[in-house]
Every structure is written in C-alpha cells, then in structure tokens.
Amino acid sequence: MRVLCRDAEWLVHRVDKLDHTGGSQIAHCTGADEMVRGHQAAFVTDLDQVVQIDPKETRLTRDTSHGFHKGKLFLGAQLRQMT
C-alpha cells in the first residue's frame, strides 16, 4: 500500500499494533518519491497523519516529449531501482 505522510509518498511494508495504546499502530515504510526514496521510516498513527493513497484516483498524463523520451527515462529509472 502507498501512503502520504510528512509531505512524502511511502510504501508500507508492515503495520504493527501498539498493545498499550488502544488503537495506535506503527507503519513501517520505505520512501517512494524523490526526496525520501530508499529511506526507511516508522510512523506512529497517533502522532503522524498517515493518509492512504487510493489507486483509483491516479491521474494519467500524456507524454508529449519527442519519441516518448520522458516516459522511457522514467520507466528505465524504475527498472534500475527494482534490481
């Protein structure tokens, strides 16, 4: 799942419940956008505003660059990060 927290996008890997605090949870995440990419973080839901990103609200944009240059660069960067 992807979430927004502290003005950055994060990938959630695991969520743990804090037993001693009622409904509080810890979201263990890895940074997904440019500023925090690759950084590990843990957010306590009672302290940080963690907002789930709904994939249905994703907006596609047209690549108007010559030969789809920007799209190819983006896909190439994503593939390099996966390996």
Rank of each mutant, 00 (worst) to 15 (best):
R14H: 15
K70E: 12
F68P: 00
V44L: 12
M82G: 01
A42F: 07
G22F: 09
Q25K: 15
V12G: 05
R6D: 14
K70C: 05
T58Q: 04
H69S: 11
H28W: 15
T45A: 08
Q49F: 07
A77P: 00
A41T: 03
R2F: 15
A41G: 04
T83N: 08
C29H: 02
G31L: 03
Q40T: 07
H39P: 01
D54V: 05
E9G: 08
I53R: 09
S65R: 02
T58V: 08
I26T: 09
M1L: 10
Q78W: 02
Q25A: 11
Q49E: 15
G67P: 02
D48H: 14
F74K: 00
C29A: 05
G22K: 13
K17P: 06
D48M: 06
M82Q: 07
S65N: 00
G23V: 08
A41N: 12
R37F: 00
M82Y: 01
D33C: 15
D16I: 08
Q40F: 10
C29D: 05
A32C: 07
V3C: 07
R80F: 01
A27W: 15
E34D: 11
E34T: 04
L4W: 09
L47Q: 11
S24G: 11
M1C: 06
E57F: 03
D19Q: 12
H13L: 14
W10F: 12
V51C: 08
L60Q: 06
F68N: 08
D48F: 12
R62Y: 04
L18A: 11
L79S: 09
L18N: 14
H20S: 14
Q25N: 14
A42M: 12
I53F: 07
K72G: 00
R80D: 01
L75T: 10
S24L: 06
K72I: 03
V3Y: 02
S24H: 13
G31K: 05
L18V: 15
G38E: 00
R14E: 15
A42K: 12
H28K: 13
